[in-house]
Write a protein that binds this DNA or RNA. Structure first.
Lengths: 192, 192, 192, 192
DNA sequence: TATGAATGAGACTTCATTCAT
DNA sequence: AATGAATGAAGTCTCATTCAT
């Protein structure tokens, strides 16, 4: 087993346990156990529990950003770009419920207290696509002229809520639903 | 001090500490201290910490429901009723940030894992005004014909997101904003 | 068992173990065990291990100072006062080898790094008898006019060395020896 | 790098770290790191940490003995020989504070519990110059007729105390001081 | 009913030592 | 001979809960 393998074992064991049980029901010993390593081994790869938790988040962020940006074309009309990103994001969360639950937990904990939920996509990589999108929309008068934070709330809070309902098994989201929800969110931010 | 007084002292001490510090930084001893009672006394009124935490939530739920229903008139048009409830709810959260923070923490924790965020207003007590409202709207074709859960997500997830941004100091929500946001949410669920 | 009793059990259990084994071979669990209390109980009386260790030292310091000053008469000639204090101190250490070993360990550890070995007697209670004694001696030209720190080294380092030899069982110090050693130390500081 | 080189790297890395940080803040991994070798390599040269620690002490002992005996002439009068050895020893410690700090730590730890501080100079290697000196002095009636251990305490405990004060920065020992202190110690053991 | 000292399981983390390469 | 990743026992401390008063 290579160096990288053990590190990955730890990361995914932690991701799984924390997603399912929450941060405070995920003792390091349990993570080590699930990863098939000794308790001390985790500390070879991660300075402490906080660092491990933050590292998982950072990796998830990258994956989400990469997935969502894949196939994104900046030259389309605003509405199409919005719908594309919105549905791609929701589909990613539906396909990866563990990732979603982890991200949610992280945002609602001291660890991610500083981060904003809506800075989810690409912000760290410099330009934030979503923010750009809204700014462009506002300047074109296609989107309501209200604070960006409000636009985020209107457009993406429902997305997260639906993703949560889905991972909790409260609803089974079908493709038609994804599209209708995306359109409804667009209507909320759209300038009419 | 009467029986009820002590119970209330405990409830509000716990509410305050948990709202500000989070569940896992709210030891029973600290709660007892702030409530001015002995550590063991808490266990006379509440079987254990979980029960206490759930009890606080239930009381908050009642207060929210009562406040929001106050002044609500079932005879108005759908849209007006929606706007009324929506703005009343957001205003309540803005006025009572501790209550909001507690509710948020509860929902994003194992304690409230089973409950749904949208069951916020009175659902558990039988009649759920919001649910009635949406059903009525759907039957009148004033509201989109999609699953109720989705309507809740579209209409109320942004509200919670805005309330959070407000309590975190990320935005200062003014009266004009409240109204515009309410209208935007209506547009999201509205059948056009 | 009263509140004070348990605290004292802990203090003397810790004193004994640390004296015999050293700080790093005195785990809290062992102390708790010897004191006949639960592991967590120690933390009711002492914030953490450091505090416990410092507290023990402070109590010993008090006892030593009290014992040595008992029967001390400031009105005697310098030489007699010196001999009195010196012999009283050595006799105390011979009678209380555990106390001596603890004090020694404390001084040679990060805990007591700031304290000086020679500030042993009464400094914390304001006036340091020994320092006064030396100053008086210098001004009377009865004692060598060299830095106080050197006087302490000349007069008291041998005392501690003898006490150590005794507690380690390397020598059996008899009364005649105590007196001869005291006189020898006086000769070292005496101005001739 | 030769066998001997690596061994020496380890010894001096350990000496430095332990002198500055103490035994319990000197993990083997840190020593290995500073020595530029793998953690496992240490165990090729030294059976375990205790052996390493004892080995360092033994090497220091040799160096001290060699340095002090250098220039020592057995044919001088007792007093001159004493003064010579005493001052040479103090000067060595002042010049090599790391060596002194290590020796001190060693003596005040379980590792050196069995050794006596006054066996410092070559005693274990058979002939002990100091012991010879005192015996000679006693037989000439130049030195007090008391147990050798006491003579050591009177003569050398102050030396170590002064060296400690110096390395801690509490005093700046000048050449004049060294001589006066040596003479004072002679007065303490001198038979008058 | 009320108390709060006492408990001990369990959390995080360190580090001497081993062993496959 | 040399390495350094891996191990897991052991250390300090927290806190929900109990029980004698």
């Amino acid at each position: 087993m290579k160096h990288t393998d053990k590190r990955n074992e730890i990361l995914s064991a932690a991701l799984e346990i924390i997603s399912e049980q929450g941060f405070h029901k995920a003792p390091m010993s349990m993570i080590a156990n699930k990863a098939g390593v000794g308790a001390g081994t985790i500390y070879i790869y991660f300075e402490n529990k906080d660092v491990l938790i933050n590292e998982i988040y950072r990796e998830l962020e990258k994956k989400v950003a990469a997935t969502v940006q894949e196939g994104y074309s900046a030259s389309q009309p605003i509405r199409e770009k919005f719908i594309y990103l919105w549905t791609a994001l929701l589909r990613y969360f539906i396909k990866n419920p563990l990732h979603f639950r982890y991200i949610e937990q992280y945002h609602n904990s001291p660890y991610g207290a500083s981060l904003r939920r809506d800075k989810l996509m690409g912000k760290t990589e410099g330009s934030n696509i979503l923010e750009e999108l809204f700014k462009e929309g506002v300047s074109q008068q296609a989107v309501k002229d209200i604070p960006i934070v409000m636009l985020f709330a209107l457009a993406f809070a429902p997305l997260l809520s639906l993703a949560r309902d889905h991972t909790l098994g409260l609803i089974k989201i079908e493709d038609a639903h994804v599209m209708r929800a995306a359109e409804a969110c667009w209507e909320a931010v759209e300038n009419k």
